[in-house]
Structures are given as C-alpha cells and as structure tokens.
Amino acid sequence: MKNGIGRIATATFTYGFLGLMAFLSIFPFIWMVLGASNSSIDIIKGRILPGEAFTANVGKFFTTVNVPLVFWNSAKVAIFATVLTLAVSSLAGYGFEMFRSRHRERVYRAMLLTLMIPFAALMIPLFIMMGKAGLINTHIAVVLPSIGSAFVIFYFRQSTKAFPSELRDAAKVDGLKEWQIFLFIYVPVMRSTYAAAFIIVFMTAWNNYLWPLIVLQSNETKTITLVISSLASAYYPDYGVVMVGTILATLPTLAVFFFMQRQFVQGMLGSVK
C-alpha cells in the first residue's frame, strides 16, 4: 500500500499531466478568441490578454469578405458532401456485410487499399477528369470525389456487424423488400452510427482546403477555408481579422458536435443497443 505522501505525489503528477494536455488542447481556441479582440500588431507582439479591437476586427471582416456567400458556399459543399457520403457509404457498408459472394472480401480489401493512396497522388488525375467533365470552378467538383469514402464504408461495414441479422429476417417475413429493410429498419436502428459518421464527414468537408483550392477558382465559389487562407496570405495580413474569420468558421462544426455528441459517443462505442 502506498503511503499518504506517495498518493498525493501520484495524484499531483496525474492531474498536472492531464491539466497540461487539456491546456495544450484548448490553447488554440483561447488564442483564437483573444486574437480576435486584438490588433494585428498586438498579436505579432505576442499579447495574450483580451484587447479592444474585437468590434473593429469583426467590422473589417464583414467589409472585406462577402460573409453570407462564403458561408452559403461552405454549407452547400459540406451538407451535400455529408449527405451523399453517408447515403453511398452506408449502402456500401450494408451491402458488404449483408450480401455474401465469392469475391466479397477481395473487393473489400482492394477498396481498403485505396486508403493508402495519398490525396496528392490523386489530385492531378482528378483535376483532369473534372476539367474534361466541365466541372472546374463548380461545387459539384468539390463534392464528387469525397462521396465514395473508403474510410466511411469501412466504418459502416464494421458497425453493421452489430446489426442483428434476425431483424432483417423478421422484416423479410413482414413483407419488406431489401431497400425497405435498409430504409425503415437499418437506418433508424443505426442512427448513432450515422450521427458519428455525420460529425466526422461534415467536419472533414467543412474544413476541406486543398482540393477546393485547386478546383474553385473564382471568388463567387470559394468556401470559408479558402477565404481565411487568402486573408492570412495577404501582403499585410491582418491577424485580428483572420482570427474573427476562424472563430466564425469554427462555429458550425462546434454546433454540430454539441448537438450530436451523445449519439457520436454511442456511435463510436457500437451503435446497436
């Protein structure tokens, strides 16, 4: 048994370590909020106290950027990408798990191998494809490559293993066709899996930077990540304004997470209860 001093030392170390990790996690957010209230010069000087330039920074951001259009572009891309990815990937995951065929596992493994291909290697062929399809500078070009996500298909297949096959049998006896079983039984039963996947896919789509940077070329089509990046890479970047933009860009993903965190945790643990 440990003595009192040993216990206190262990607890101090544990909480100290956890506190440090928590601080490191939350520091970018604190820095972002404090930065938004300071002028660019104060931020460069390293001021980490709340300043008085918040209103001015917000004003500058709204005059520099067409905020409604940029947010509409981001929302359009993120929502379409998320809905289509969930629809296609959950169908694929369901199919991989439910239907037996001789080559099922080979096809599945081949699909998983695509996870190892870096996006940088796909970028140029994808750009050429989109160019040939006449989709450059459209939001469809941003959404299309993300729809068939090997990772999300993998996630849905693994989760579908917990879906009781007897529910499918019962639905067949009740007279449902396969698509009806998917829509009326599988989707509602697996809603926690969908919620977790929604958060992951939405955040990825909302924060997507590299591919939109390549295919979206006019200001009218640009998303929030591209706009913030262009503000930060200006000849005289105004970091206070950049921080305001970053706060606004973070809000939708935070809101999605806060509203769905319970389902997210359930979905990550295993969705069928």
Binding site: A170, K172, V173
Partner: peptide, 29 residues
C-alpha cells in the same frame, strides 16, 4: 416470398424493431 407463404415467425432473439413501440412492432407487417 416469405411474406406470401402465410407463415409468421418468432425468433430466438425476439427480433423486435428497437425504434418502434410495441403497438408499431405488432402492426408493422
């Protein structure tokens, strides 16, 4: 088709639809 054979089946794990009430489960078919 199973639904047209005039049979009804009771499964080992009950196979009740978890998102429906008892009433909805019973009336679903």
């Amino acid at each position: 088709d199973p639904s047209k054979r005039g049979i009804a089946m009771v499964f080992q794990s009950y196979a009740l639809y978890p998102h429906m009430t008892v009433r909805e489960n019973m009336g679903f078919a």
